[in-house]
Design a protein around this nucleic acid. Sequence first.
DNA 1: TTGTATGCGTTATCAG
DNA 2: CTGATAACGCATACAA
Lengths: 338, 338
Amino acid sequence: MATIKDIAKAAGVSVTTVSRALNGYHDVNEKTRKKIKEVADQLNYSPNTLARSLVMNKTNTIGLLVSELNRSGVKDNFTFEVMCGINDCVGDLGYDLILFNTNPDKQKKKSYTQLCRERQVEGVIFQGMKKDDPYLKEIIDSEIPCVLVDIEMQGENVGYVTTDNEFGAQMAVKHLYNYGHRHIAMVNGHDQALVSIRRLQGYKKMLSEANIPFNENYVVDGGFSEQNAEEVTIQLLKNFPEITAIFCASDLMAMGVMKAAKNLGLNIPSDLSVVGFDDILLASYVNPPLTTIAQDKYKMGYESANLLINILNSKDSSRVKVLDNHLVIRQTTAEKHC
Amino acid sequence: MATIKDIAKAAGVSVTTVSRALNGYHDVNEKTRKKIKEVADQLNYSPNTLARSLVMNKTNTIGLLVSELNRSGVKDNFTFEVMCGINDCVGDLGYDLILFNTNPDKQKKKSYTQLCRERQVEGVIFQGMKKDDPYLKEIIDSEIPCVLVDIEMQGENVGYVTTDNEFGAQMAVKHLYNYGHRHIAMVNGHDQALVSIRRLQGYKKMLSEANIPFNENYVVDGGFSEQNAEEVTIQLLKNFPEITAIFCASDLMAMGVMKAAKNLGLNIPSDLSVVGFDDILLASYVNPPLTTIAQDKYKMGYESANLLINILNSKDSSRVKVLDNHLVIRQTTAEKHC
DNA sequence: TTGTATGCGTTATCAG
DNA sequence: CTGATAACGCATACAA
């Protein structure tokens, strides 16, 4: 618990000199500095960043706001991979991360701005936010630099990172089309997710390019839940037995679709082809292994942090980063048999 | 960026009164308080926790130190589930979490104590630490309250949370024994992991109870890596074809073992029975679904945080929490055929 | 019930 | 090259 005051006393100099010596200023005598460093070592000194931040008005801290970082969020490792990327990048660039603990209840009591200002974070990264999150509209008005993962919103201090969801969806549908499928359904997430909207656009666009009329009954929402997807798919396939292929807005839901197929006695891929989205770890382990659109989740995290720190340093870079994704063909898709 | 000073000026009172009014002290006139709260609202005031922490010498912050919270750590969701539990508990109890970003390189430059004191955390939770981590020996000497996940170390301010690894291993081996297996091998992690040591003890203990002589050649290390486990298992099974069952110290390694079996043309479970440890998400999705010892990872996190905060409040509770685990029988184990 | 003065640990300004 | 002093935003002992 030694402070620079203690060091000053022990070394027989003023606190000013101690501060400057320890911070590597050049206007301090080398002999004095050496002496001070010795004393500091001896007293096992470590600077108090609270005090430093207070006076410098800079905390070197970034807030991380993750939806569902709780019991319900452990279904897949998407969020975790993003976090790993964020953590690596902020570490590389000398920042620390503070994990904001929040939920709908707490959000009512404390505004976004309050949350951030209390902890004096320099910027914020959002992951897993829904379009109807009450904090969302505050973000753009606030002065606090912010980067959103998978929410397209930008402003002076606000940017986002996402993958090319529309194009990814097109690739998925095209892959099915190339295999001869013409009755292609889609199991989407929900309309509060931006990625769902974009992936639906891609689905429609590809159908249109292929001159297949869009049938709104072929699109159902699975709420990004495996079980939910299973249920709606069973209904879907019962209602429209002509469907031979399904594009899913997430791998988790694709797994629900696979269960539904099993339930109905349909073989994958010979009776039904399935394409997912994300390429979560499970995708290559399910049986049969899932064909999917892979996105680099770690990179999404890394680039989010990178973008935020660029904004902090007001580098006049773009406020948007769209990452590539690509089709990974495994064994849930096959030629349509006649 | 309004401060209590601004409020004081606008409300025509002193900063002391503002401070007390906002903090709910009872020695302030209700009328004054109301006025002050109005002004505070109007100025969109939020308290600066840095300043508060500095003067109160209490940060309400817990440091989280996670090994491999980086690109290499995304293989399974064990760590993530633990983190979710930690996050939920600290949130419930009014703390915030700061994610320490560290690695072997940074550890050389900055000691454990320095890291903690700089950010003035009140306590620390360690997850995924190895026995040879240079920080480990510092922990016990340091004054900083600390809880370790899966490292058995305790002291005045140090506790740990783990599951009953020895007993879990016994259950696993007993299950194999009950199915008639007598040549039971073990694919362990590495000797720098405490859980490996305990699980090996359980393995030996059960063999001993069953009057099966311990054969050290039957135990190999897979380093907690799927690929590594696959390689060592191929060698193991080539050298000792009489082996009919393998107990693995992690599910990930069990999956490596399953690949090895496939590689050697062995059918699971009819030719080789396999039991894992952890019950990660993948366990129920691999083919065939993996029999394993399940541990409640979320709870491990939650209890770790809970224990730490108990220590902070110097509740004279135990410094140790050992959670139960249980056998989940799926389809990788079967009666030994004759 | 309210205000004055002081200090938390640090950096910044400016004079010597 | 060095030191005295103020300031960051807040809480508190003590005086009024």
